[in-house]
């Protein structure tokens, strides 16, 4: 927060508080600027997809929301409250562990490589958070987990360890595991990139149903432009740690205004 000209409110108030707000957020690794004074709002219930070339900072955006990366500059707000910072004596200071734990409970994330716990069955993976973190009884957690496994079509495999499941199956369990914590914001980082082409549909179907049935706020990074077009409310094209261009799928994909967007999209379409 070195830039004194920017005012960071202690809380976001008013009728249209976004579920996620990046305000002037920068992230650097040494000399490499990964996010460059990024502003990004995601409304409650909105499905926003991030596309862009490799290294443009897409994953970093999600990881910063999940508090997996520290912020160098700016403030991120979740549900109107600062995530990376907290209020102390009327000023914003760096968030401590307790504050981050409180805020993290609103956020769920699915990873490219699933990261299921290998020593637990699919069901146990989905019960771990509710039982250990939320303190829910085992019976209730089992019921909740089975419901979600049912929803992602993995109920019959609930007693299998991840090593016995295909990539698509593992990713569906990972989605159920994240949903079992009842987050308000779900983050998907290239959840189909590690999958064989023939099972990608298993996972995209689950996400499509989520979009249709839930009021979840979702932020998704993907290289599947077709899928993004189909389910997104808005697509953001990232370049060099900033949003180069954004808009509804039809606008951004069919009539991109910026040269870099056009180049990126034609490269992607040529590849397909």
């Amino acid at each position: 927060m070195t830039d004194k000209t920017i005012h960071y409110p202690l809380k976001l108030e008013g009728p249209d508080v976004p579920m996620v707000r990046f305000m002037n957020v920068s992230k650097r690794y040494g000399d490499l600027v990964v996010l460059d004074r990024l502003d990004l709002d995601v409304a409650a219930g909105e499905m926003v997809t991030i596309i862009g070339p490799s290294g443009s900072g897409k994953t970093t955006v999600l990881r910063m929301i999940m508090t997996l990366e520290k912020i160098d500059e700016g403030v991120i707000y979740i549900d109107g409250e600062p995530l990376t910072h907290m209020e102390k004596n009327g000023k914003l200071v760096r968030a401590n562990q307790a504050h981050m734990r409180k805020m993290r409970s609103k956020i769920g994330m699915c990873f490219q490589h699933f990261n299921l716990f290998p020593h637990m069955t699919a069901l146990e993976n989905c019960m771990e958070g509710p039982v250990q973190v939320l303190g829910i009884s085992k019976d209730e957690a089992r019921e909740r987990a089975m419901e979600l496994l049912e929803m992602v079509g993995m109920a019959e495999k609930s007693d299998q360890h991840p090593s016995r499941l295909s990539g698509g199956q593992q990713q569906r369990v990972a989605i159920a595991r994240a949903l079992a914590m009842r987050p308000k914001v779900m983050l998907f980082d290239e959840v189909t990139s590690a999958l064989d082409p023939e099972v990608i549909n298993e996972v995209t179907t689950v996400i499509r149903n989520l979009v249709d049935q839930h009021s979840l706020t979702m932020l998704m990074v993907t290289h599947q432009i077709g899928f993004a077009r189909e389910i997104s409310d808005r697509i953001c094209f990232f370049f060099g740690g900033r949003i180069e261009e954004q808009g509804p799928p039809t606008d951004l994909l069919d009539e991109p205004q910026e040269d870099r967007t056009q180049q990126f999209l034609s490269a992607v379409f040529d590849a397909n």
């Binding site: 997996l68 734990r101 409970s105 956020i107 994330m109 990873f111 716990f117 771990e128 958070g129 914590m181």
Partner: peptide
């Protein structure tokens, strides 16, 4: 233990002690 395991445990909001002991 792969880094992704730490991150998945953190994403479930597990405390550092639980992360270590359970995962």
């Amino acid at each position: 233990v792969p880094k992704g395991q730490w991150e998945a445990a953190l994403a479930l909001n597990m405390s550092p002690a639980k992360r270590m002991r359970r995962i």
